[in-house]
């Protein structure tokens, strides 16, 4: 569908109509920050958010979800969770991270639980209106995205340009009524905004190109920065939990109150946590903080790149904001590796 114009009052009415018809989750104020939550009314939607505390990953891979149910006598049944929902106002870097998850969970062995959820999600992306202090999406090529969404919204002056790319997007947009085609001036301003985003979303500046990162890591395994920075690490895993492109999980059985049946659940896990590489008997294959800290950057900057073709960092800066010790910033880490090259 060709790009349309959406005035601010029409936008408001459209969101209200979506909320009546669908479960819509979008960024809302939470204290002095922002978080995705179920929208009760259009006024709660904050498309001017800089970044949310957690990425929308929580709707595609919840902190905990049921994989199977079992009885202790040995009956197992698949559970496919997931209900239709609309993610509204997703920033381009988070759209890019969702595309990475899609790739990760479908490559080699398709993860049916992830797909069951993913197929029911419609994504309304929104170009960034205000930048967070840790953002470096422009360095990672995710300040804007050409695809990966159903609908894209861009605020140009006092009006939105809205573009649907899929049938699901068209269906959502139909609820806005009859819309005017976006004029050349609006489309030109959108182009300009996309160019400006390359500067706006570079509050932290990575001193190499994203495609140089796997090679940089190839040369940096013994770099002193791993030890220096990790000496401050609490192994709390905050950097992992807020990351839109960290996908690791643990699986645990929970027995019900009847002591007969139960659920097998998977939950977020992270390679920074002490027990992550522990095996039965107690041996820990990554016993040192330094080893865990380094592994996270290698997994994201090199291993997943070699395997899936993407660097698993989209430059949202959430890890840097979440880290108590101030050591999680990928930009600071990569730049310090670059200094000694």
């Amino acid at each position: 569908m060709s790009p349309k114009k959406l005035s601010l009052p029409t936008m408001n009415d459209w969101v209200a109509a979506l909320i009546r018809e669908h479960r819509v989750f979008g960024p809302q104020a939470k204290g002095d920050r922002f978080a995705y939550d179920l929208l009760g009314c259009a006024a709660d939607l904050r498309l001017d958010h800089d970044v949310t505390i957690l990425p929308p990953r929580k709707y595609l891979m919840p902190p905990t979800e049921v994989l199977i149910t079992f009885t202790r006598s040995g009956k197992f049944e698949s559970v496919m969770e997931g209900e239709p929902l609309v993610l509204f106002g997703v920033h381009p870097y988070d759209v890019a991270a969702i595309a990475q998850m899609d790739r990760y969970f479908t490559q080699d062995h398709a993860d049916s639980h992830y797909l069951a959820r993913r197929k029911k999600v419609t994504i309304v992306a929104c170009d960034v209106q205000s930048a967070s202090e840790n953002v470096f999406a422009a360095c990672m090529g995710t300040a804007t995205v050409p695809d990966g969404f159903d609908v894209l919204l861009t605020l140009v002056g006092e009006t939105y340009v809205v573009e649907s790319r899929t049938a699901a997007g068209d269906a959502l947009l139909a609820l806005a009524g009859v819309l005017e085609d976006a004029d050349a001036v609006s489309l030109g301003r959108r182009e300009q905004l996309w160019m400006d985003a390359q500067k706006l979303l570079r509050r932290q500046n990575l001193r190499c190109r994203v495609e140089d990162l796997p090679g940089l890591l190839d040369r940096s395994y013994e770099h002193p920065a791993w030890r220096q920075k990790s000496e401050l690490c609490f192994s709390c895993g905050s950097c992992v939990m807020v990351c839109p492109s960290c996908f690791c999980f643990d699986v645990q059985d929970e027995v019900g109150w009847d002591l007969v049946s139960g659920e097998r659940r998977r939950q977020w896990d992270g390679c920074l946590l002490t027990q992550f590489a522990c095996v039965a008997g107690g041996h820990n294959f990554r016993r040192l903080r330094e080893e865990r800290y380094r592994h996270r950057f290698y997994r994201k900057g090199k291993y997943l790149h070699d395997r899936c073709g993407f660097v698993a960092c989209v430059g949202c800066g959430r890890c840097a904001a979440a880290c108590t010790s101030g050591i999680a910033s990928p930009v600071a880490l990569y730049n310090s590796l670059l200094e000694d090259q």
Binding site: D111, F249, F276, V279
Partner: peptide, 19 residues
């Protein structure tokens, strides 16, 4: 090589040996 193979299908991340 023994590691903590949790999912068995290359998704959970626990058994990674470098890449």
């Amino acid at each position: 090589l023994e590691r903590r193979m949790k999912c068995g299908i290359g998704k959970c991340g626990h058994c990674q040996i470098n890449g």
